[in-house]
Design a protein around this nucleic acid. Structure first.
Length: 988
RNA sequence: GGGCCCAUAGCUUAGGUUGGCUGGAGCACCCGGCUGAUAACCGGGAGGUCGUCGGUUCAAAUCCGACUGGGCCCA
């Protein structure tokens, strides 16, 4: 029979997972577990919808492990989890870009000629293509959600809820149109929100040019101003130069006699040799100075091409004279609007120069940089041209450099309720705690208005219709839209752009024809709506409660600016409450050397493959064993190391127990045993202590202490309980004691399985089924339906503390044996401890000392006064002293009787090995003949009765000399003495 | 340039809130035991200026400050 079937060897995590998964699938365990009970406390949860167009990466396993363990814990508590629905984030640029690539589309014009309807249809189809991979990954991980009823942000009811929320904001005046400078992706031809920009900063090299702005007026203090910029492409749109009133400026005369003005603080950067300074004056004197613009594209206009004053100017970079192009920067826009100089934007929607700038016509903005710089040089305007390495924002979806430009857009006026955001955030229990007032809190206090509209196709359409006069009407439901349009919408209405764009209606204010604003909205708004929109709130009854935040959310650190943020903004604006009570955030997952995983480095670990190869529990355990709040280094070796120890020991512990239990045909103890021995009381107390620790940790949403507590229990059971109970398991004590040990261990393992169920769903199920002698058949017998134990046993604080002391003392004893060079199988007379028994040892009583004696293989443990030290001379005793004070002592040599006993035991071990080598079962009886001489012979004779019993020998013969050589005869050399034996199976 | 976080043995980490007993543990390493948990189990050993410098204190891994290195975020 293969070892695995006998239960002799512990199965691998992989094998456990296969067996458990087959059971769960066949018995329908997942379905049963996901049924929401009718009563019980409510645990509010929402799955953060992953973008349904990208495959999962390792970081997703981390967040899912932390989400799953809370869900499992609360299900075991009997709570009503609202809700376990999975969800998919279906809209947005990511999907659109994928479809553009697939069809070779390069611009919005090409999308329109391709057909918006067809384009949207492809987007819709593609979103769910990767959903299968996600489902598969979650199945392998054991992340239990209801995937059959997943919410999708592209479904009509979901969109209707989003519309409802937008109208709610609109009615409060929190959704408004504005013309502002926004980060803009010229490839996607749409503005982006600040949290999207935040994802795409990259190091890059840009030009850094300093340009002469000639001053023609003779009475001015200089002939030319030096102006610095890293965006030469904005120079054709220059309308003003800004200086700072209280900054000192210098006029410098160069070797060629040229007179240049720049901030005094900038002079050393431009002139390494101190130049001739013609004049110094405050910036205020420059106000109104007229100059010749670098290009003539913008043409004349009121108030243009003069110096204005503003406080945003500094001299830390550049020249202290800042070029202002009101279309291309937030400060530029503000200054331009204040000075009423109008705007000039020579770029089309793709960021390409039009005919107004002949030098760069037909070139995209970045490509125009060298051309424009060249043109300036040819006209003698270029003073200096360098390059600069700095961070610059790129489109997080398509990697195109962004530009800041003034554009019409709809905004959520987040800045109007910053105080409420901060107040609500203050109530959140963040893990790790510092995020609350640190990174996330800081971000909130600076919250900017949320640029919501996107000039795109595949997204929730902005439900705002505007008439020629400019009256805006926000529509909050399909019913309202049908009513305004004069006929109800069809039941098959698809609110996406093509159908919605066709609908127009008379403006409720002036009666003129109102058309929809041609925008979609930021997909982050969709996902932030998940708590209510997944239930089609407020159109259908459902479990969503506007007054109640989610109890728990968990995602990666990157989501602080993403989902965690939009959830909070929407819950605050719509429901005037926080979005969640507790939020757990995990750090990035790095490879084993600490590098980011990226395709270009080839160090990406595919989560599905990893799960298939190693099994989920080792990966889960690894994620729970490292500090998940910081960047985590995870590689295959890390997982095997982190998991191998605890999970391996646990599996072996179970295998050991099963083997013993089956050999003696003992049933598991399902009810709490009443312990009669110290060791059993201790084991049960440790079990209860672990239960308390795991529960406390999970209640605080910090799973680390839970993992630590479980690891310690496994360790205690393996290295102390089982180790010290071995003779009991071999039936060397009484039948009752054998039974008590079995009961205690089975009960402890079953308890452990339940405590570990939220963290290690597969291993715990395997233990529960195997140790509980269940059959991997019945759904209701799953550990995940077993309920969380309220109490498992009694705590025994005195015994728990005392045992720690006892084990420390055992270490001292082993060290002494080591020093005395007496093998632990040879019994010694006594272990002497100096001083009075400590309270801890006293609490353990004589049973404790007996345990210690057995562990050290000594006849007795004795306490003696410290003053008796002289009675233990170093020639006969090994003594441990600390700072001259004796602690403990052990005889250097065994007595002859004890030595004989040790020899007999040594013989016993050889014979046991022989039994095993012969393939005998532990229950098979044998006939034995042993040959020995001298001390060994007398030792074997003296121990014959015991040897015969241990070996199940019906016949045990001892001969002087050697047993005749034969096929069943074995021969050993024990420190120079020959031992021979023949062992044969007894014919019963 | 600003903010938040991290730094304990080669690796993964406990402890840090509440300063105080020799800073625990696992992996790997060396030595050994066991050989009916055996591709397992157990013991012993070596390995730490607790990132650096300074401060507070009778006493600092722990509290404070600066610096160095790393991560994330913002500008």
């Amino acid at each position: 029979m293969p070892p695995e079937e006998t239960g002799l060897t512990a199965p691998s995590a992989h094998a456990i997972q296969a067996r458990v998964t087959a059971y769960w699938e066949a018995a329908g365990v997942v379905t049963r577990a996901l049924e929401t009970p009718a009563t019980g406390e409510i645990f509010r949860f929402t799955e953060g919808p992953p973008t349904a167009n990208g495959p999962p990466h390792l970081g997703h396993l981390a967040a899912r492990t932390f989400k799953d363990l809370q869900l499992r814990y609360h299900r075991m508590l009997g709570d009503r989890v609202l809700t376990s629905k999975a969800g998919w984030d279906c809209h947005g640029l990511g999907v659109e870009i994928e479809i553009e690539k697939r069809n070779g589309l390069r611009s919005k014009k090409e999308i329109e000629s391709f057909g918006v309807e067809k384009f949207a249809a492809e987007c819709r189809a593609s979103t769910l293509a990767v959903a299968d991979v996600w489902r598969r990954m979650s199945g392998l991980l054991g992340y239990w959600l209801d995937y059959d009823h997943a919410y999708r942000t592209m479904d009509a009811p979901y969109i209707e809820s989003v519309w409802w929320s937008l109208k709610t904001l609109f009615d409060q005046g929190l959704l408004e149109k504005g013309h502002y400078v926004l980060p803009y992706c010229p490839r996607c031809e749409t503005p982006l929100a600040s949290h999207e920009v935040a994802q795409g900063y990259k190091e890059t090299t840009d030009p850094s040019v300093t340009v002469r702005f000639p001053v023609p007026r003779a009475d001015s203090p200089a002939r030319a101003m030096l102006v610095w910029t890293t965006t030469p492409w904005t120079l054709p749109a220059n309308l003003l130069v800004a200086a700072r009133a209280d900054l000192e400026y210098s006029v410098v005369r160069t070797a060629t006699g040229e007179e240049l003005v720049l901030a005094s603080a900038a002079v050393p950067r431009y002139f390494p040799e101190p130049p001739e300074i013609v004049d110094r004056f405050p910036g205020s004197r420059l106000a109104g100075t007229e100059y010749e613009p670098p290009f003539s594209a913008a043409g004349p206009g009121p108030g243009r091409y003069r110096v204005v004053l503003d406080d945003f100017v500094t001299a830390e970079e550049g020249t202290g004279l800042v070029h202002i192009a009101p279309s291309f920067g937030p400060d530029d826009q503000r200054v331009g609007a204040r000075e009423k100089v109008g705007v000039f934007d020579p770029l089309d929607s793709r960021g390409v120069f039009g005919p107004a700038v002949p030098e760069a016509k037909g070139k995209s903005f970045k490509a125009a940089d060298p051309l424009l710089t060249q043109a300036l040089a040819e006209r003698g305007r270029l003073y200096r041209s360098e390059t600069l390495r700095h961070t610059y924002p790129f489109c997080w979806r398509c990697d195109t450099p962004l530009l800041y430009r003034a554009i019409d857009s709809w905004f959520v006026r987040t800045s109007r309720f910053t105080t409420a955001l901060v107040r609500h955030n203050a109530t959140v229990e963040w893990v790790p705690a510092h995020l609350r007032d640190g990174r996330f809190g800081n971000f909130l206090t600076e919250a900017k208005d949320w640029a919501l509209s996107r000039n795109r196709y595949w997204g929730t359409p902005l439900p705002i219709w505007v008439c020629p006069v400019g009256h805006a009407t926000c529509v909050g439901s399909f019913e309202e839209l049908g009513r305004r349009a004069g006929s109800p919408l069809p039941t098959t209405f698809d609110p996406h752009r093509v159908e919605t764009d066709r609908i127009h209606f008379p403006c409720p204010t002036c009666g003129q024809d109102a058309r929809r604003e041609p925008y979609t909205i930021d997909a982050w708004y969709d996902s932030g709506s998940a708590p209510f929109a997944q239930f089609h709130f407020p159109f259908e009854p459902g479990p969503f409660d506007p007054d109640e935040p989610l109890d728990y959310v968990a995602e990666g650190l990157d989501q602080t600016r993403g989902w965690f943020y939009t959830l909070l903004v929407l819950s605050t604006a719509l429901f005037s409450r926080p979005a969640y009570r507790a939020s757990l955030t995990n750090g990035m997952v790095l490879d084993e050397t600490g590098r980011k995983m990226s395709k270009s480095k080839g160090n990406v670990l595919d989560p599905v493959q990893l799960l298939e190869r190693l099994g989920a529990d080792p990966i889960r355990w690894t994620l729970l064993s490292v500090d998940f709040t910081e960047p985590m280094r995870v590689g295959e070796p890390t997982i095997q190391k982190a998991a191998g120890r605890t999970l391996g020991t646990l599996a072996n512990l179970v295998a050991f127990h099963l083997q013993n239990g089956r050999a003696d045909d003992l049933p598991p103890a399902l009810d709490r045993p009443i312990p009669s021995t110290l060791l059993d009381r201790w084991a049960l107390a440790r079990l209860e202590a672990t239960r308390e620790a795991v529960e406390a940790a999970l209640e605080e949403y910090d799973p680390r202490p839970a993992a630590t507590a479980l690891r310690d229990l496994v360790d205690d059971l393996s290295t102390w309980y089982v180790r010290r109970s071995r003779p009991r398991f071999w039936g060397e004590t009484t039948t009752e004691d054998r039974r008590a040990a079995h009961d205690t261990l089975s009960y402890a393992l079953l308890g452990l399985a339940r405590l570990a169920a939220p963290l290690l769903p597969f291993t715990s199920e395997w233990i529960h089924q195997e140790v509980g002698e269940l059959t991997f058949e019945d759904a209701s017998s799953s550990v995940h339906l077993a309920g969380w134990p309220e109490t498992l046993a009694d705590r025994e604080p005195a015994i728990e503390r005392g045992m720690v002391e006892l084990r420390a003392l055992a270490e001292v004893g082993r060290e002494l044996r080591h020093r005395a060079e007496v093998k632990s199988r040879i019994p010694l007379e006594e272990f002497v401890r100096f001083g009075d028994p400590t309270p801890g040892l006293t609490a353990l009583g004589p049973e404790g000392l007996q345990l210690l004696a057995e562990e050290l293989n000594v006849r007795r443990v004795r306490h003696v006064p410290v003053a008796d030290r002289p009675r233990f001379p170093d020639e006969e005793w090994v003594v441990r002293e600390e700072e001259g004070v004796p602690q403990a002592a052990l005889p250097r040599r065994p007595t002859p009787e004890l030595k004989a006993e040790g020899l007999a035991r040594e013989v016993g071990r050889r014979l046991q090995q022989t039994r095993k080598d012969l393939g005998l079962q532990p229950t098979d009886h044998v006939r034995v003949t042993v040959g020995a001489s001298g001390d060994l012979l007398s030792a074997v004779r003296a121990g014959a009765a015991r040897l015969a019993r241990d070996l199940l020998a019906d016949q045990f013969e001892v001969v002087d000399g050697e047993v005749a050589a034969g096929p069943a005869t074995r021969r050993w050399d024990l420190d120079g003495v020959v031992l021979t034996a023949s062992v044969a199976r007894a014919v019963s």
